[in-house]
Computed example of a mutant assay.
Amino acid sequence: MNWESLLLNANAAVCMLIAIRLMFFQRNGRRHRKVLAWLAYIFILAAAYIPFRIWFGHYTGVDPAELLINFMVCIAVWRANGNIAQAFNRS
């Protein structure tokens, strides 16, 4: 396994973790906001699309900075339990 293959597989795993956590978010009595729901939906589609492109060979190059950004987003999403509003809150 070479460096490029390692980066591709790591990026696929990180993006799938983002998509999975967002898909299984539960509101638990929190207020429903349509804009954030649509934002989460688009985010899920975008994050889940990358691993499928990698696995089918249409995504051939990953920059280490891209992997780092995806990893940081993954950490933010998991720390917020999949809550987009909390993950990207400015306060």
Rank of each mutant, 00 (worst) to 15 (best):
17 L>R: 13
55 W>L: 07
43 F>H: 11
15 C>I: 03
50 I>T: 10
50 I>D: 01
12 A>Q: 02
47 A>D: 02
44 I>A: 05
24 F>W: 09
52 F>G: 04
47 A>N: 11
41 Y>V: 00
44 I>L: 08
27 R>S: 10
38 W>G: 00
17 L>S: 14
45 L>H: 10
15 C>W: 00
37 A>D: 15
32 H>E: 13
49 Y>W: 15
22 L>W: 06
32 H>R: 15
42 I>Q: 04
33 R>K: 14
41 Y>E: 06
24 F>E: 03
52 F>S: 05
40 A>D: 01
14 V>W: 01
20 I>G: 02
37 A>F: 14
38 W>K: 08
52 F>Y: 10
53 R>K: 15
23 M>Q: 14
13 A>Q: 12
41 Y>C: 01
28 N>D: 14
26 Q>S: 09
39 L>H: 09
27 R>E: 12
43 F>W: 10
36 L>P: 00
29 G>A: 04
43 F>Q: 09
39 L>D: 02
42 I>R: 06
53 R>I: 00
16 M>V: 02
52 F>D: 07
43 F>S: 07
52 F>Q: 06
31 R>S: 11
40 A>E: 05
32 H>M: 13
29 G>I: 04
50 I>L: 09
25 F>D: 03
43 F>P: 00
26 Q>P: 02
41 Y>T: 06
13 A>I: 02
31 R>Y: 08
21 R>C: 05
50 I>W: 02
56 F>P: 00
19 A>D: 07
21 R>D: 02
21 R>T: 15
20 I>K: 11
34 K>N: 14
56 F>H: 08
48 A>W: 04
47 A>K: 10
42 I>C: 05
39 L>N: 06
44 I>K: 01
38 W>E: 09
44 I>V: 15
51 P>E: 06
19 A>N: 08
43 F>N: 11
27 R>Y: 15
26 Q>F: 12
45 L>W: 13
31 R>K: 15
38 W>S: 03
28 N>H: 15
29 G>C: 01
49 Y>L: 11
56 F>N: 15
50 I>E: 07
18 I>D: 01
13 A>S: 04
24 F>S: 04
33 R>H: 15
56 F>M: 09
30 R>W: 08
55 W>H: 14
39 L>S: 01
31 R>L: 13
27 R>V: 04
21 R>L: 00
53 R>T: 09
34 K>C: 09
39 L>Q: 12
40 A>G: 11
28 N>E: 15
17 L>M: 12
30 R>S: 06
54 I>L: 08
35 V>T: 02
23 M>S: 14
55 W>P: 00
40 A>T: 15
38 W>D: 05
29 G>N: 12
32 H>L: 13
53 R>E: 14
49 Y>F: 15
39 L>C: 03
12 A>S: 13
47 A>C: 12
47 A>E: 03
23 M>C: 14
26 Q>D: 07
36 L>H: 06
36 L>I: 04
48 A>S: 15
27 R>N: 07
34 K>F: 13
36 L>S: 11
54 I>T: 07
28 N>F: 11
52 F>T: 10
27 R>T: 06
43 F>G: 01
39 L>V: 03
